[in-house]
Amino acid sequence: MVFVAHQLLRFVLIVFGIILMSGLPTIMPSGGSFILNWSGYLDSVQQVVTGLLTPQDITYNTEGAIRPLMPLLSDTVVYSLIIVMSAILLALFFAGLLTFVTMLLPRKWIKRVKVITFVFESLPDLLIIIMFQIAIVWVYKKTGLLVFDVASLPGERIYMLPIICLSILPMIQYFKVMVSIVEGELEKQYVELARAKGLIQGKILIVHVLRNSMASILNYSKTIIWFMLSNLLVLEYIFNINGIMNFLFEYLSPTVFAISLLSIFIPIFLLLVLGQWVLEKTTNEKVVM
């Protein structure tokens, strides 16, 4: 019960925060003065609240034509969410696999792997996404072989490339975190006991360490998702994907900002809370969010 109440409070606070943020552009001084425009801010927050209460009436302005937002938005949100979720799953899977393989390596090699991870982790998302696109176009020019569709046209949707592209950096980050979590876990006494009983390293990792490090990994997921959302913006812009971020970027009005962010925040929040609930029920680990 306390759990539900706490999560509800968290949820309400975040929604409240998003609404307060969506008014921020109007608070900026304008017309040469340096006075914050508080009345304009309150007006636009009020406008956002009324807009959110009657979502079927929200419209957006596209080069003079005014169109209703609602049926279009759910479509774009679903598309973006599919990309984000698949990318996370892909990243988690490969990071897990890599961690497993790394932990079986001798200690000297683990150190080298860590240095390589460090360098890759420092690469900006812009560089990776742009390199990806250039590489694919280059391969196409040289061989005539189009590995993936590099840009989406209205009406058709691409999945493979954005998912792979979006999963690279989270994979590296997950990998780095997983290695450090697993290393910490391996020093604990239950691992020693398992070793003493004659279990092989692989089994210890998959059966025992995995279960005990789930909570920390979930904890870190929030940061990674936050990071992915800003990658998503760049990705959708470069590949011309009609996803939620592109939409947001094109129609930067307070109401559209609030409703787009809410529509992408709510599913992610629900998933994280679900994960937290399941983990706290099934394991003894405590998830701090």
Partner: peptide, 9 residues
């Protein structure tokens, strides 16, 4: 809320 909204956006 700052953990759900990318700074860039």
């Amino acid at each position: 809320v700052f953990n759900y909204i990318p700074v860039t956006i």
